[in-house]
Every structure is written in structure tokens, then in C-alpha cells.
Amino acid sequence: MEKWFNVGKIVNTQGIKGEVRVISKTDFPEKRYKVGNVLYLFMPNSNTPIELTVKSHRTHKNFEILSFEGFHNINEVEKFRDGIIKVPESQLGVLEDDEFYYHEIIGCLVSTTEEEEIGKVTEILSPGANDVWVVKGKDGKEVLIPYIHDVVKKVDVKEKTIIIDPMEGLLS
């Protein structure tokens, strides 16, 4: 049975030429939405995916704007609203060293180099230059950990552990 991973949600149309607005949930939008890539659209109340091939991609404000081959106007893509875009596990591909998929990081236990347990990664934010990992501690407080080499020292996705060397003030 194929495992599927969410890469975005179609929230609206964009213009009249068949483009859609996507709130992206993917780790690598530049790779995932590349022209020619095949994505799979899952609509609410349907288990049968619609296969879509990316015709164009651009970023506008906080949205990824996509068009698909064979869909040329707003009337043809309006029905895609609220659909979830997914890719099969077989399409994930090999990553460089120090690159990880979100699903590999979420759930990892974060500790310091001094072996102090901080908590588990619950979410990943992509505000700009680097990702920020949201770590929820035992006390329920959230700590934001920037994914930069000065802080994140070791990631073991098999063991689901992350070792960090927190900068001064990061954990307070």
C-alpha cells in the first residue's frame, strides 16, 4: 500500500487562466512544484486521486501559484478548491546531507549537548532564511529552534533524536 505525503492545499483560483493558489506544506517547493512534476489531488469525500502535471509555478505573497497541463481556464480548476495535493512515498527522492523531510523531523526528541531533554518537534516553520523547529517541552511550553549549524549539531532520523547546542538565551 502506497504511503502519501501532503505537499499543499488548493485554497482558491488565481486569475482566469486556470491557475490555483496553494498553501504549501512541502519541504522543498522549488523541487516539488517543478514544471513537469506529477502531483496527485485528493478531493474531500473521494479516495481516488486526480493526477496533475505541473505546467507553471510561481510564488505570490504567501502562496504557490500553479497551473496544470490540460486545464486552461478558471472554470476547469474551480472544482479543485479545498483539494489536498499529495505525492507518493516513491516520489520523495534522495536528499543531500543535512537535508530532511518534515515527516522525518516531526516527532524527534530534542536534547542538548549536555544531555538535557528539551522536548519533541511538533511543527516546522519556514519563515525565510532557515527553517524553525517548534519543540514542545514536558511542561507544555514551546521552544523555537532555528535549523542552523551553530545550533543543531546532530540529527538521527532513524533513532528520532536531535542534539542541539543552544545559543545563550535560546531556551529561556
Rank of each mutant, 00 (worst) to 15 (best):
E116H: 05
E117S: 10
E117V: 13
E117H: 07
E117W: 06
I118Q: 03
I118F: 07
G119T: 03
V121I: 13
V121F: 01
V121L: 04
V121W: 00
T122Y: 00
E123P: 03
E123Q: 13
I124Y: 02
P127S: 07
P127R: 08
G128S: 12
G128K: 10
A129Y: 12
D131P: 08
V132R: 06
V132M: 06
V132A: 07
W133L: 15
V135L: 05
V135W: 00
K138F: 10
D139V: 11
G140V: 10
K141P: 04
E142W: 05
V143G: 07
L144Y: 14
L144W: 08
L144M: 10
P146F: 01
P146Q: 04
P146M: 02
P146Y: 02
Y147D: 14
Y147G: 10
V151Q: 06
V151E: 11
V152E: 02
K153E: 00
K153C: 01
K153H: 01
K154T: 14
K154S: 09
V157T: 15
V157N: 07
K158I: 12
K158F: 10
K158V: 11
E159D: 15
K160C: 07
K160R: 15
I162Y: 04
I162D: 09
I163T: 15
I164D: 09
I164R: 04
D165Y: 02
P166H: 00
M167L: 15
E168P: 05
G169I: 00
G169W: 00
L170F: 00
L170V: 00
L170W: 03
